[in-house]
Nucleic acid binder design. Structure first.
Lengths: 137, 137
DNA sequence: ATAATTCCTCCAGTGACTAGAGCTTCAAGA
DNA sequence: TCTTGAAGCTCTAGTCACTGGAGGAATTAT
């Protein structure tokens, strides 16, 4: 039997976050001690590790809820789980593309600036005048 | 003289967002018509375009506030403006790196799944067992 | 003159936590 | 057994950059 603090230390998930996950329905409401404190078992440790891992991969809470629901029906086909992961991969790739464009644009703006006065500052000028940009954004 | 709706159409910034920027001190409180409606001029159009552009580049509101303040002192050296842009570039690069790791991990997880039942689903198994991961995350 | 559109302010919601107030329970040492 | 300090409890509010809606006033078009 683990206290919420023990569970937190073992998983690296902060105490308030565990309570938040309970509230969001990702973790079942834990049993309570006589004094109303949450008590957890191995089962909860695994569930929380699953959630943590999914969050680290950037999945949002509705997606995690769905994955948990799916994982409780071992006999179903796993296309839905695969779809969630694949959709997320697409979203991650889109974000990378956007950020690469930003990176490129920022590099260009910074490298054009000679570091003298604000008056001639390419950073400021580029922001003021979209015409100085290369890509569309 | 432009209404807030005109300004919105010309800049692509939504009406409530313009009011929000005013509240955040990025735009000066506009003059008002007799009936208390905001009236803008070319000056405001430029300011809003500047803000929009900076937001598109991913700069946050405090950074934009600082850039605006700097831009109003043309005689100052522009190292501070350059620093804001450079710091942001570093942050963008870090985000890209993180997302690339995620992309890689998701690709691996998805490609390992044979698409049969949840019981054997690699997506679910990988989430349950961090030991199946390659990188640290 | 009337109708349709746009504007106003104020308040609440988004996602995924995080922090604090004020109180209760637990665990360890004296 | 008593005490004390840490950890737990609930509830509320704050984060960031908006976004949306209610309810009412002003403006514009017909």
């Amino acid at each position: 039997m683990l206290s919420i603090g023990d569970l937190s230390k073992r998983t690296g998930v902060k105490v308030p976050t565990i309570r938040y996950y309970e509230q969001m329905g990702l973790i079942e409401a834990a049993e309570r001690s006589e004094g109303n404190q949450r008590r957890y078992e191995r089962h909860d440790l695994e569930r929380l590790a699953f959630i943590r891992h999914a969050r680290d991969l950037g999945l949002d809470i509705p997606a995690i809820r769905e994955l948990i629901a799916l994982s409780q029906h071992p006999d179903l086909p796993c296309v839905n789980a695969d779809r969630i992961a694949a959709d997320h991969l697409v979203a991650v790739r889109e974000k990378i593309e956007k950020l690469k464009k930003l990176e490129h644009e920022l590099e260009r703006i910074i490298s054009h600036c000679d570091g003298h006065s604000i008056e001639d500052c390419y950073v400021i000028r580029a922001l003021s005048d979209h015409g100085l940009c290369e890509g569309e954004h």
